[in-house]
């Protein structure tokens, strides 16, 4: 008694046809993404769900390495706030990163990503927190004065009404003037996921 409780909880794959109909992905793409999802979701616990630890592990190859940005992205993927990402969450969130996703959708996601306190504004202290996280991650030291100079300059450009916080409208204008900021919001891989995960054909429900 007691030693054999490791039975895997099988969670059925959400209907690939439905997911394809509401995203830029084809049914085959969704099936290929399921192969990727399975790989990530079984890396720590084989429960058909991605935990924050597994997400972190997939990005950094190191589950102990806490990262503010990975944590934020995970929280945005976890739309139902269950503390885990299911396959539907995964596909819908990756859809934002699809090269064909509208720029507006990417702008909205990036705004939420950087609005750490979810107040509807990107505030100075949040920008400072993110710069410090980046510097810590990259093991770079900058003086407090340099950091303040960078933030001042950024708010001069991104916060035209100078109220000390960037609202959605200001963010949108700022991103239109600096489109390179959206580069992290596009994953070219997603245009061709079936090539990256060809094993999906063994489980495909799509007929030739």
């Amino acid at each position: 008694m007691g030693c054999f409780h490791s039975k895997v909880r099988e969670i059925p794959m959400e209907d690939p046809f439905a997911l394809a109909s509401e995203t830029a992905f084809s049914v085959s793409d969704v099936e290929a993404l399921y192969e990727l999802f399975k790989n990530i979701s079984r890396s720590v616990t084989d429960d058909g769900l991605i935990s924050k630890e597994e997400f972190q592990l997939a990005i950094f190859n190191n589950k102990k390495k806490e990262n503010l940005f990975t944590s934020r992205i995970f929280d945005l993927f976890d739309v139902k706030k269950k503390g885990v990402i299911d396959f539907g969450d995964f596909v819908r969130a990756l859809n934002v990163f699809h090269p064909s996703a509208p720029m507006e959708v990417k702008i909205e996601f990036s705004f939420k990503l950087y609005d750490l306190d979810n107040t509807g504004f990107i505030e100075r202290h949040e920008v400072k927190q993110m710069i410090n996280a980046l510097l810590c991650e990259a093991e770079i030291k900058l003086s407090e004065e340099t950091i303040e100079t960078i933030i001042n300059k950024t708010f001069m450009d991104a916060d035209p009404n100078q109220d000390g916080k960037i609202d959605k409208y200001e963010w949108k204008n700022f991103v239109y003037e600096n489109p390179s900021l959206l580069k992290v919001m596009t994953l070219p891989y997603l245009r061709d996921v079936t090539t990256a995960f060809p094993s999906f054909v063994f489980h495909s429900k799509v007929e030739d």
């Binding site: 990727l36 990262n67 990756l94 980046l134 990259a138 991104a158 994953l187 891989y189």
Partner: peptide, 25 residues
């Protein structure tokens, strides 16, 4: 030069924002 970049250009250099690594699993 970090001072010539805006804060978000710096932030977007984080590896934690680079989801390409998901595809290496």
């Amino acid at each position: 030069q970090p001072t010539s970049m805006n804060a978000f250009e710096l932030i977007s250099m984080s590896k934690g924002l680079n989801l390409e690594n998901l595809f290496d699993t």
